[in-house]
Structures are given as structure tokens and as C-alpha cells.
Design a protein around this nucleic acid. Structure first.
Lengths: 155, 155
DNA sequence: ATTGAAAGAGTCTCAGT
DNA sequence: ACTGAGACTCTTTCAAT
């Protein structure tokens, strides 16, 4: 897959830099990587065309926006055939920001972002428990995020 | 906190839109939200100054970059006083992209991104197990990401 | 494939409202 | 606080290498 795309070191350097800061100008990034701004431009357009780069996203401070609680929910299903219908119901809950089907302890694993603990309680007890097919859930509340970073794609 | 910042509906609309697409021009975003491009500009600068907006990030397709495996690791510590020293060791492992201290089943909860299962095995058995203070770990391998989205800040 | 320069588009500043 | 216009910077195209 990577061999088909034929990404070279410069492509990876551009992606790695812009994963942390997508606001840098092509000219400035070119200076850092010892090529012209035009070359950066050509590479980025190619990466977009190939689908490797899927746009840029604003990085908001969730705490400052009043979202103080991050929690992870391990979900046990009554039958594994209920995956898709339960996923559809979970998608309707706006506080759930991510859902994965997983091997191991749980059938599904969700991440949830709430303003406060009472909002988390509402989601857990009034929304999640009403979904048919969920046997039980286990909640891990994040007390602190030690770190969060992009994957290193160089070396 | 939010009251101190005094964010109005327009601020939240700008953030919500740019969380998904930070490439839109001020003029175009202004059209969508029925204000001038200049107003969008003023608001965004204010949000940056206040720290609500912490820059923009490139959104790469990890699969196309050859990172096919996402896993979650629940970590049991021998003593909870070992938090910080273990976190420091985990930070050195480049495949670990996120680490949270959590209530519930585990002491810590990590997210890990790898090229393939054999790389995951190396991290689990050769890197994680060597860290003093970790009693044992439980691995949840993501078979599929059902969805992943930004938190909704409007309504 | 990379470059530099010209044309086009976007950002930023500011005076007026 | 919002707007529109001018100054400035960045992106995009393109001919040359």
C-alpha cells in the first residue's frame, strides 16, 4: 500500500510537520526542509489527490470550552450479531465521539466527552442503558491526560 | 470558565465548523454564518489569543501511511505511586500516542498505533513488559473504527 | 521533479459606522 | 462590534531546467 503510493522522505517530513502545525506557509516549510515553496505545494497537492492528506482540523481546547470530562466505556453485548444496530444507536448519542469494535475484554469500546460528571451520568444511565443489546458497561473516567500526540512516521 | 471567556453563538459556530474543516477561507465562512470575512478574522484572532483555539492540524489517512493497527492497553500498576515514573517510560515508546490516568478497572489507559500486528507484539512484549512498576496489561485490538468525530458544541 | 516569477486569492489592518 | 477597502502575504499556475 505504502509502496503503491511511493512516498519519499520529503512527503513524510511534510506530513509529520503539518500533523502538529498545519498553519505554516509553504515558503517557511520549504525553508525548514531545504526545498522551494513550490515543491511543498506540488507535494501537498499530490498527497491530497492520493487521499493521504484528508484536510486540516482546528484544535480546540475542550476544557476551556467547558468540556471537563473524558471517559472510556467498555461495552459487553448480549450477542455479537447486535454490533451494527447497537453502533447505530450509539452514534445518535452526541457525547460519544469515537467507537471501536475490539478484541479482548469488551465487544465495543467508546470514548465520551461531557461537560461534567452529571452529564456523564445522564449518558450512562439514561441513554446507554436503554439500548437493546447492551448487556453491561464498564466506565473508565480519565482523571488526567498524561499526553496525546500524533504517531511518528519518520525513521 | 466559559462565562469568563464569554463565547457567543458565532464563536461556537466558527469553532464547530473549523473542527471539521480548517481550510475554509474567512470570506466563505462569513457567507455561511451571515457576517463579513473581517468579523470571522477578528473572532478567530480573539479565540487564538484566549487559547480556545490551539492551531490547526493535518488529518492524515493512517491506513494509507501503513499504520493498520490501533489498540488500547489497560495497565495495572504494582503501586499507584508509580504513576509518574511509568508515564515517563511510556512516553518514550513512540507507538503510544495517548495516555490517561483513569478510575475503574485499570490504573492507566493507553492508545497505541502500529504498522502491523508484529510491531504491536514487539511493543507489548519487548517494551511494555520491561517497564518496572507495571503489574500486567490487557490489550484491546481495534478490529474496526465504527466512527470518530468531534464533540458537538452547539445547541 | 524542482524552481522562480507572475497572477490570483486570501489574510490582516484600519478608518468609518 | 461589524464592515469594506487597501496593503500585504500566501497560494497557484506555468515556463524553464
Amino acid at each position: 500500500m505504502n509502496s503503491k503510493l511511493n512516498l519519499d522522505r520529503l512527503d513524510l517530513q511534510i506530513i509529520e510537520h503539518m500533523m502538529d502545525d498545519a498553519e505554516i506557509s509553504y515558503a517557511d516549510l520549504g525553508k525548514k526542509l531545504f526545498v522551494s515553496g513550490g515543491t511543498i505545494h506540488v507535494r501537498i497537492k499530490k498527497l491530497q489527490k492520493d487521499g493521504v492528506v484528508k484536510g486540516t482540523r482546528l484544535n480546540p481546547d475542550l476544557k476551556l470550552l467547558g468540556y471537563d470530562v473524558i471517559a472510556f466505556i467498555g461495552i459487553y453485548l448480549k450477542e455479537s450479531s447486535l454490533y451494527d444496530s447497537v453502533a447505530k444507536e450509539l452514534h445518535k448519542i452526541k457525547e460519544i465521539v469515537r467507537l471501536n469494535y475490539t478484541t479482548g475484554n469488551y465487544s465495543m469500546f467508546a470514548e465520551i466527552v461531557c461537560k461534567d460528571i452529571s452529564e456523564l451520568r445522564v449518558v450512562l444511565h439514561e441513554k446507554l442503558q436503554k439500548i437493546k443489546g447492551i448487556e453491561r458497561t464498564e466506565t473508565l473516567i480519565s482523571l488526567e491526560e498524561s499526553f496525546s500526540r500524533s504517531v511518528r512516521i519518520l525513521e
